[in-house]
Simulated assay, not measured.
Amino acid sequence: MLINPDIKDFRLAHLFRDLEREVLAQIARHAVWRELDAGEPLFARGDAGKYFFLVKTGAVKLFLLSEDGEEHIMEIIGRERLFAEAVMFMGGSYPVYATALEPSRLIAFDAQFFVSLLRNNSSLCLTLLAAMSRQMHALVAEIDRLTLQSSARRLAQYLLAQPAHKSGSSRQVALPASKQTIASLLDIRPETLSRLLARLTDDGLIAVHADSITILQPTLLDQVL
């Protein structure tokens, strides 16, 4: 049985936070929960883009495959993040593969219904344009980070951007994926990532654990070049 989400489950996502409750209620009636096991595909490249998604728990990797089958991670989508929303405006297919990195719970939104709402509500269009513009600025900053910064700087900024449990001046960061996956995301080799983690550890900036990292000196880590 398909279960619809409640408004409170998604209203804080960037695409919805400025929408009126009546509109949110309509969206909720055309959305369903999706449960994925670790390693379970959500969609493949070329599949019809019928839905866009919000991750509530777990994490999903977006990736492409080279001709020889090598996986290249494009993005890791963590909790409370939307993805694939751009596909509904293009009316096409998904340009990447999506697979759960761990047991995950998502909300799937009906893209066709959402577009029909926009066609009949000009003020809603303007609200969403503002929300997507804010998101675009964030993505441009992310592209700058990946293309203009050194590998050490990219790693430092990636760690600082992750949700963290604070204890005094330190931060405990749970890694959302394997170190190999994170290396692919940051466009560096796994062995380079290992060397960088060792260097930051020797410098007293971080402590590396099995599936987490403690940021011991956040201010100094932010100054890594």
Rank of each mutant, 00 (worst) to 15 (best):
residue 181 T to E: 15
residue 21 R to F: 10
residue 135 Q to H: 12
residue 223 Q to V: 03
residue 62 L to Y: 05
residue 28 A to R: 00
residue 209 H to T: 05
residue 74 M to T: 13
residue 145 R to Y: 04
residue 215 I to D: 01
residue 62 L to K: 03
residue 76 I to A: 02
residue 1 M to W: 10
residue 171 R to H: 13
residue 45 R to A: 15
residue 187 D to I: 10
residue 83 F to Y: 08
residue 113 F to N: 06
residue 27 I to G: 00
residue 11 R to M: 12
residue 135 Q to M: 09
residue 53 F to L: 07
residue 39 G to E: 04
residue 210 A to E: 10
residue 222 D to H: 10
residue 141 A to G: 06
residue 173 V to R: 08
residue 24 L to A: 00
residue 67 E to Y: 10
residue 203 D to I: 06
residue 10 F to D: 03
residue 80 E to Y: 12
residue 110 D to K: 03
residue 135 Q to P: 02
residue 24 L to T: 01
residue 108 A to R: 08
residue 210 A to Y: 10
residue 170 S to W: 08
residue 9 D to Q: 11
residue 53 F to H: 15
residue 56 K to L: 11
residue 83 F to C: 01
residue 115 V to C: 06
residue 206 I to P: 02
residue 6 D to Q: 13
residue 162 Q to S: 04
residue 8 K to E: 15
residue 178 S to G: 14
residue 123 S to F: 09
residue 137 H to R: 13
residue 195 R to Q: 05
residue 115 V to L: 14
residue 3 I to A: 10
residue 165 H to P: 07
residue 101 L to I: 05
residue 110 D to V: 03
residue 218 P to F: 08
residue 61 K to M: 10
residue 146 L to N: 06
residue 36 L to W: 07
residue 80 E to N: 13
residue 64 L to C: 04
residue 157 Q to L: 15
residue 61 K to N: 09
residue 13 A to E: 03
residue 74 M to V: 15
residue 11 R to Q: 15
residue 71 E to P: 04
residue 218 P to W: 05
residue 28 A to S: 05
residue 127 T to V: 05
residue 198 A to K: 12
residue 169 S to V: 12
residue 110 D to N: 14
residue 18 D to Y: 08
residue 224 V to N: 02
residue 3 I to P: 03
residue 122 S to T: 15
residue 208 V to M: 06
residue 83 F to R: 10
residue 203 D to C: 08
residue 173 V to N: 07
residue 145 R to M: 12
residue 168 G to A: 02
residue 37 D to G: 14
residue 172 Q to R: 14
residue 95 P to G: 02
residue 185 L to M: 09
residue 143 I to A: 12
residue 170 S to A: 12
residue 7 I to M: 06
residue 29 R to W: 04
residue 225 L to S: 12
residue 194 S to C: 06
residue 175 L to N: 05
residue 39 G to H: 06
residue 164 A to Q: 07
residue 197 L to V: 00
residue 224 V to K: 05
residue 101 L to D: 05
residue 134 R to Y: 10
residue 117 L to T: 07
residue 114 F to Y: 12
residue 137 H to F: 09
residue 201 T to Y: 04
residue 134 R to Q: 11
residue 200 L to V: 00
residue 96 V to W: 14
residue 107 I to K: 00
residue 188 I to T: 00
residue 203 D to L: 13
residue 191 E to V: 11
residue 22 E to K: 13
residue 73 I to W: 09
residue 108 A to S: 12
residue 8 K to V: 11
residue 35 E to C: 06
